[in-house]
Amino acid sequence: MFSIDTGSGFWNPILWVLVIIIAFLMMYILRSLGRKDYRKTTEQIKPFLSGNPELEKDKMHVRGSNLYWGFRESLKGFYNVLLKLHSGNTSDYILWFVVIMAIFFIIIGVI
């Protein structure tokens, strides 16, 4: 009753949540065997920058558009084409509508 069966697989969330709760309790106990203290007011809490000086916070925060450089770099050709297509022109929007309608007409008419 609590699980879904798709004909090719199944999923029961309640048992999974039970496993998570028990594992969480176990690992929490394991974790509390370790030390929880640290010297809060010393040099320990400064970020590790391999000896480089720490600049003001605005410059130290890695901004959103710098993320996923590797992904964007390796798909550069694809993105050039894609961004050119998203031109922002309203007449382009209607152009795409007409193109899809034409393709659909051909499909329905011929097949």
Binding site: I20, F24, R31, R35, K36, D37, Y38, R39, I45, K57
Partner: peptide, 28 residues
């Protein structure tokens, strides 16, 4: 036996919760 240092610019509750959550899900 080592100290558990939480850096100044970290968000403490996520910083501490993430390793635990990862291990628990992996065990499941």
């Amino acid at each position: 036996t080592k100290e558990n240092v939480i850096p100044r610019h970290a968000i403490p509750w996520i910083f501490n919760l993430a390793p635990l959550a990862g291990l628990v899900a992996t065990i499941s």
